[in-house]
Structures are given as C-alpha cells and as structure tokens.
Design a protein around this nucleic acid. Structure first.
Lengths: 188, 188
DNA sequence: TTAATTGTATACAAATCAGTATATAAATTA
DNA sequence: TAATTTATATACTGATTTGTATACAATTAA
C-alpha cells in the first residue's frame, strides 16, 4: 500500500474518532495528512469509500491484535474465553484506544439501507460470532446466548469509555463477564 | 408550551434518530413540521439549543414512563430492580422506540468539551445513578458496581437494537441482568 | 378601532461541503 | 534521454449549511 494512502487512512481514522465522521471534511483530512484532495480522490473514489476502508482497517487491526494475544502460548479453549475481557481491558486502557469504529459509525449513519451502516452491522455480528466460536470451543451449552451477552457488555463498555475516558467501565464489564461465563460453564 | 414549538421538537426528535443529527438540516425540520425557519429560531436560539432540548425531553419522557411503571402498585425495593429490565424490554420493543438519544449524540459529538457531549454524559451518569438508587434500596452491597454493570447491559442492548431492530438483544440483556442481580443479592 | 403578538414568505449572507478540471513539477522507468 | 507515473497547486462548480433581514398577513388584546 502506498505510504500516502496509508497516511490518509491513519489521519482519517483519528479525525473521525475525535471530531466525528460527518463533522470531518475531506479538506481537513488532506490538510492534516499534508497532501491534496486530488491525491485523496486517486486512492478513494468517494468519501464514503474512505469511511468504509477506515472501518475495515480498524476492525482488522483490532482482530489481528486480539488473535495474536489469544494464540500465543498453549491456552485451552476454556482459558481463552476467560482471558477475552482481560485483553479487551488491555486494549481499551492502551493509549492507542480511541473507540470502536462500528459503534460510532452506526450512530452517525442510522439508515439500515446505508452502506456504512450495513458494514457496521456486519462487523458487530462478526465480532459476536468470534466470541461465539470461543464459547463453542469451550463446550459451553448456549454458546450463542453467552456470546450475545458478552458482546453487549463489550459494546456497552466501549460506549461508556468513548463517552468518558477512564470511566473504569471495562473493569466492571470484566467482572460481569466472569460471572456470566462461570454461570454458562456450570450449565454445560 | 406552544403547539408549534412542540411540533418542531417532535419532528426534530424523529429526524435526528432516523437520519442522524448532523445529517438533518433545520430546513428539513421546518419543512416536515410545516413551518418556517423564522419560527424555529424564535423558539430555539441555535440548532445546538434545539438538539439539547430534544435530548432533555427524550430522557424526561423515558424516565417519567419508567417511574410510573415502577411506582404503580406496592412493590418492594427488591422487586423493583428485578422488574427494571422487564420494563426496559417493554419500552425497547414498543413501536415508539427509536433509540437512546444520549448514546447517539455522544457518538456524533465526541469532543468532551462540547455542550451536547457533556449533556449526553450527564444523562448517562444520571440513569446509572437511578439504577444505583434502586440497588441501594434493595440493600445490595456493591450497589454502584451492580448499577454500572446493568447500565452497560442497557447501553449495549440499546446500541444493538439501534443497529438492527428486532435483534432480540434486550431479551438476553434481561437474562444477564437477572444473573448479575441474583449474584449481587446473595453477597448482601 | 388600534396595538401587539404570532406566524409566513422569501430572499439573502457567508461558510462549508464533496468532487472535478487544468496545469505543472518531480520522480521513476524504459 | 525520453516516457510514464505520481503528486502538487489552484481554482472552480454546485449544492448545502446555519442564521438573518425584510416585508407582509392573521390573529388577539386593549
């Protein structure tokens, strides 16, 4: 990938999170990235396409980071799901955390027919399925039900953390997750 | 309150939820409300003021509805907190539900210095304190901790329901809430 | 009847928005 | 060296944004 395209993606990601997507114009993005609109529109056909690529890259980066954390060493499936919220906490508390893209995007583009909204919805569903696979591997009976509950805690905590940094919401989400996981394991 | 001001508030509330706040211009609002910009600006100094009043009215309406539900009949404190998510489910599943204003607003106005963001943050905190009072009245030990966890489930479920109507997220949030509440009561 | 209030109609200002056209400079490749 | 690619600079279009100015109509109160 071109270094300029990469820089535009990075700058756009940051500005979208700190100022909002609709409130960030392409003029601002190119000014901060130190390039011009002509270059931006060479790499991205429309602003919508830029938004979509920003969302995709953000989610890919997070998933890659999470997968690496979960797959280092030799962890049993039951351990992995117990560790999930530890890693999420680590991620949320890192200085790099600026929010969950698909949560914000779905709020800014509420129309369910909109391409950006559809992508947000897909990413939310995929992450829930990812948790569901962890739960299935751990031999949990109602794996999908638990996955949905954990995803609610995740999205709720991310929302709270976006609203007020350092709220400590993720700490209590982790505690709640442990209770729900332990309860689900007992029933299996 | 003037009938016209009321109509503008209603129309703005609906449009903000279905199209997004920043994507809804005042021209659209007055056109749908069947009035003119001059009238809108007679009742609201700025668009920001309109947004703020929309958020305040939405939260007041929800809180009033919830209080009435909780205070009809003679319910013990422990019953009230157990019933909380039943009422939230009823509210979310009603046709009138269009989302939680302060969740969307905080996403569209991420800057913590922004007046709209501040109000969103305040409303979220007030609702959590409201749950905290229910928990305290029910003699729960870590009332604030439980309130935070329940608010995460609430915001997560609302977020999920905004993203995809009829997702059934609230049903599983209710189940999770029951587990967390029962666990907290045991420890008291 | 006169005065005040309330709302409408319309046009406007000034800024910002996404996206394009054109021309030029620099760097890379053949 | 010549040709091609990559990026810049700048100006523009046309639509949209919030908010205001001005003039007029209808209703209500004194």
């Amino acid at each position: 990938m071109s270094v300029l395209k990469d820089r535009i993606l990075l700058v756009a990601t940051d500005l979208f999170h700190t100022r909002g997507i609709n409130s960030t114009g392409v003029d601002t993005i190119v000014a901060v990235a130190g390039t011009t609109k002509m270059t931006l529109y060479k790499y991205f056909n429309t602003k919508e396409q830029l938004i979509i690529e920003v969302l995709q890259k953000s989610q890919q980066d997070f998933q890659s980071w999470l997968n690496e954390k979960l797959n280092t060493g030799t962890k049993k499936p039951a351990e992995k799901i117990q560790l999930l919220f530890d890693y999420i906490e680590e991620w949320v508390n890192s200085s790099a955390f600026i929010g969950v893209g698909f949560i914000k995007a779905s709020a800014e583009f509420p129309n369910e027919e909109n391409a950006i909204h559809k992508l947000s919805s897909l990413q939310s569903r995929e992450f829930r399925q990812f948790i569901g696979k962890l739960a299935t591997d751990a031999n949990i009976k109602d794996a999908d039900g638990l996955a949905l509950q954990l995803s609610l805690l995740f999205e709720g905590a991310a929302q709270a953390e976006q609203m007020k940094r350092g709220s400590g919401a993720i700490k209590y989400a982790k505690k709640a997750a442990k209770i729900l996981i332990d309860g689900a394991i007992k029933q299996s």
